[in-house]
């Protein structure tokens, strides 16, 4: 439904996006993820029209958006913060985009959306009287009020504290799914990208690195950057034991029957799982971010099983 072809965007003297290509299908939740400065916000801005591309095509439902002004594109956007009109109440903020609707119809729509996020009781409050999470909820339903074809979210959860972030993300995902909305979320948070979306676009240095489902990204990273960014394994460097092939990407699993011996060099506990960095002794080879429920100690010897190996050059 949204097709981006050979998009290149310049900001000042720098080329921020180069030959970006992807196709977003309707009703899908997409994450646009990458490190800071990789151009993801610029990509969003090009889609919505805040920025004019150097070359390339942005098409919505087959129509070239290049000459359509922002007001007419029917694309909604939710920013990271500071998004609500400070002098208008919650209700007035939501009504803003649908002010031309007939009153009854408009009121119903607003009520419906307020109920969706459980903020009906706060409808007369001003933005500064709301908490961070409440503000973002309002920002989201405000953007949804005029029934846009596409919703863009620019780091919309990034300014919230972790617990709230997680909760809100789930809530919003449910809402978007129930409304069958197509949504692109820009985030620098890998977990967020993996958990929120149907598909992930990985961006680095203005270029698309990979576009696929979360499990594809995680299990079959297309290149070194994607692999390292999602921390899901390692390319074998040098001096590797015979079972491992040089220059290849290896997917490993901790197992008692494992063939390769490693030492725990780093240990992180997150979300109920332990994530270990395991190093093959006397070697530069290191497997990062290997998940396991078992609690190993640092320096402990752990056996790993080779699951898969492939070379980026093949794919």
């Amino acid at each position: 439904m949204l097709k981006v072809t050979d998009l290149s965007v310049k900001r000042g003297d720098n080329i921020v996006l180069e030959n970006v290509n992807f196709n977003v299908h309707e009703h899908k939740l997409i994450s646009l993820v990458g490190p800071s400065g990789c151009g993801k916000s610029t990509l969003l801005h090009s889609i919505i029209g805040f920025v004019k591309p150097l070359k390339g095509l942005v098409e919505l439902h087959g129509k070239d958006l290049i000459n359509i002004p922002i007001e007419k594109r029917s694309i909604g956007i939710v920013f990271q913060d500071n998004t609500l009109f400070p002098n208008l109440s919650v209700r007035e903020n939501i009504e803003y985009g649908i002010s031309t609707w007939e009153k009854g119809h408009r009121d119903n729509r607003v009520n419906e959306l307020l109920d969706l996020v459980g903020l009906r009781a706060h409808e007369s409050k001003l933005p500064h009287e709301l908490s961070g999470g409440e503000k973002q909820r309002v920002a989201i339903i405000r953007a949804l009020a005029p029934q846009p074809k596409l919703l863009l979210m620019d780091e919309s959860f990034s300014s919230l504290d972790p617990v709230l972030r997680h909760k809100l993300r789930e809530e919003v995902k449910e809402i978007l799914k129930s409304l069958s909305m197509t949504c692109i979320l820009v985030t620098h948070d890998r977990d967020e990208a993996m958990n929120f979306s149907d598909e992930v676009i990985v961006l680095n240095d203005g270029r698309v690195q990979q576009y696929g489902t979360p499990s594809e990204i995680y299990l079959r990273p297309a290149n070194q950057f994607v692999a390292q960014f999602f921390g899901s394994g390692n390319i074998v460097a040098e001096n590797c034991p015979s079972k491992l092939r040089e220059g290849y990407y290896h997917k490993v699993e901790i197992s008692d029957e494992g063939e390769v011996e490693t030492i725990v060099v780093r240990k992180v506990f997150s979300n109920g799982f332990f994530y270990y960095d395991l190093q093959i002794p006397n070697s530069q080879t290191r497997f990062n971010h290997i998940a396991c429920a078992h609690d190993f100690a640092l320096e402990e010897r752990v056996k790993v099983d080779l699951c898969e190996a492939w070379s980026f050059l093949d794919s």
Binding site: I48, F50, I70, E71, K72, R73, S74, I75, G76, I77, F79, N82, T83, F85, Y96, G97, S99, R142, A143, A145, P146
Partner: peptide, 18 residues
């Protein structure tokens, strides 16, 4: 007044005058 507010307003389909 954040520039984003202006952008938000435009994205909601409203003119500069509005």
């Amino acid at each position: 007044v954040d520039f984003k507010l202006y952008q938000a307003s435009r994205s909601l389909g409203k003119s500069d005058g509005h």
